[in-house]
């Protein structure tokens, strides 16, 4: 049985107990690094994202509200937003062609097929399964791979406007299904 208590460790971070941050790091860094790496696709950049995110977690531990959600989701969100901001910023600076990213070899498993087997995951799986395959893929490309609308459109060979509409309708369908 898993007894690691993320919420208590975060509370200890808020009390400036650095050993709690270390325990959170040891516990979650491998997972969070995978999350960052899948989005930024470069180990050096992913390492920077994890470094910055853990300093963020330390600084913001006192603002975490356990009534608002789980600590693990909170930490993963900090990592994802940092990774996403890096991708959007560098895409603008380098004027990255969305087609180039779409052509990247996708060697990682489809997140849907690899969904962890928890109860929460089962629910999400069932709800995602109700979406048409391309619409489902649009959601997972955005969430897991950090693709932009344009990159999703290029990858799925669909018009940009169509992809935007898919996402919006899929979100409403998922909200209904998951609530």
């Amino acid at each position: 049985m898993d007894v690691f208590d993320h919420e208590s460790e975060l509370a200890a971070c808020a009390r400036r107990d650095a050993s709690a941050l270390r325990r959170l790091y040891e516990r979650e860094a491998p997972f969070l690094l995978a999350v960052a790496l899948r989005i930024v696709r470069r180990r050096d950049v992913a390492a920077d994202v994890i470094h910055d995110s853990f300093l963020d977690i330390w600084e913001r531990a006192g603002t975490f509200d356990r009534e608002r959600g789980a600590a693990r989701a909170w930490m993963a969100s900090i990592v994802r937003y940092r990774a996403l901001k890096h991708m959007r910023r560098t895409a603008r600076e380098r004027e990255v062609d969305p087609d180039a990213r779409a052509a990247e070899v996708d060697d990682a498993p489809d997140p849907l097929s690899a969904l962890a087997s928890s109860q929460e995951a089962g629910r999400l799986h069932a709800c995602l399964a109700q979406l048409e395959p391309k619409r489902r893929r649009a959601i997972t490309l955005a969430y897991t791979d950090g693709y932009s609308h344009a990159e999703i459109a290029a990858r799925l060979g669909a018009p940009l406007g169509t992809v935007k509409a898919w996402i919006r309708r899929s979100l409403l369908a998922l909200k209904e299904c998951l609530s």
Partner: peptide, 20 residues
């Protein structure tokens, strides 16, 4: 928070990476 928590399992299937 709803989306942050409900979509998190999508990342659950990723293979953990050993940090440097």
């Amino acid at each position: 928070a709803f989306w942050e928590e409900r979509l998190l399992p999508l990342a659950g299937g990723l293979r953990p990476e050993t940090p440097d």
